[in-house]
């Protein structure tokens, strides 16, 4: 049982939770994720760790309400408990000094990107960060990102904040202007697909952090499998970060929709019950 010690709404649908997990707080590195099962009857889902506080023994998770399980987690309040939380899982991000890095976060993908931005900055890189979202209210962690970036660019689809346009337009502008040595993209699968295609045009090595369907998160089930460079890989133990140019994003998008009909119905039932 892990207690929620702090909660903040970034928007109606996006919530930051600070959760007691002293061992995980100490062990986790940038790129790691946890598996969360909110209650007895709940489902196990992966969530990437945003930050941790070793002294307080807490980790921070950012959750967007997209289905029953994410709603259940986001609806927990300070003092409530998560029934099951396990981690840190996956391979930590490989951090090194490469020169100029272009960090692209879409939606709540910005949360797991934060520790990576921090680590690359600390390693002595020039860090250019792009935060992208549909509209202003969905831009999160702007101040923290600004603190650890040499330059921060904000892109919104509707132009309600920063520059109007897609993340790829912002990326092109940077790569047209200067040499980028490495890019990391985290966000919705469709965003990562196009961000990856963009950096490929510029021959910039790119990592994407994949968020697939998982059950156990320890290599046991294979629900998270993706094709990377023509080979089947497990996101939970081989990832979650992969060479984005090798990832078969179309297959990943398809696999993400594997339970869509069941999930949508369950979500509607949940919303009807919790009006």
């Amino acid at each position: 049982m892990n207690k929620i010690v702090d909660k903040e709404y970034y928007s109606d649908n996006v919530v930051r939770l600070e959760v007691e997990a002293p061992r995980i707080a100490k062990a986790r590195r940038a790129g790691h994720f946890v598996i969360v099962k909110p209650d007895e009857k709940g489902e196990r889902i992966p969530l990437t760790i945003a930050t941790s506080d070793v002294k307080k023994g807490t980790i921070t998770l950012v959750i967007q309400k997209v289905g029953v399980t994410s709603r259940k987690i986001a609806n927990l309040n300070v003092g409530d408990h998560i029934t099951d939380l396990v981690g840190p899982l996956g391979q930590a991000t490989h951090i090194e000094k490469v020169g100029t890095v272009l960090m692209c976060g879409g939606g709540v993908g910005v949360a797991p990107l934060l520790p990576i931005v921090e680590a690359f900055k600390k390693a002595g890189n020039k860090v250019i960060t792009i935060l992208a979202a549909r509209s202003k209210d969905l831009i999160i962690l702007e101040d923290q990102m600004r603190e650890h970036s040499d330059e921060l660019i904000i892109m919104t689809d509707d132009g309600s904040y920063g520059t109007k346009g897609l993340v790829t337009e912002g990326m092109k502008r940077v790569m047209d202007r200067e040499k980028v040595d490495l890019s990391v993209v985290i966000g919705p699968a469709i965003m990562m697909k196009f961000a990856s295609l963009t950096t490929k045009e510029y021959n910039v090595p790119t990592y994407a952090s994949l968020n697939t369907i998982m059950v156990d998160g320890t290599g046991m089930c294979g629900a998270c499998r993706v094709t990377v460079g023509g080979k089947t890989k497990f996101v939970c133990i081989d990832g979650p970060e992969f060479d984005a140019h090798q990832v078969d994003f179309d297959e990943m998008l398809l696999r993400l929709s594997g339970y869509k009909e069941i999930e949508q119905k369950a979500d509607q039932d949940y919303l009807d019950q919790h009006k």
């Binding site: 059950v215 294979g222 629900a223 297959e251």
Partner: peptide, 11 residues
């Protein structure tokens, strides 16, 4: 083999 509906017995 990675189409939807194909899964391991473990899963």
């Amino acid at each position: 083999e990675n189409y939807i509906g194909i899964l391991s017995s473990n899963e």
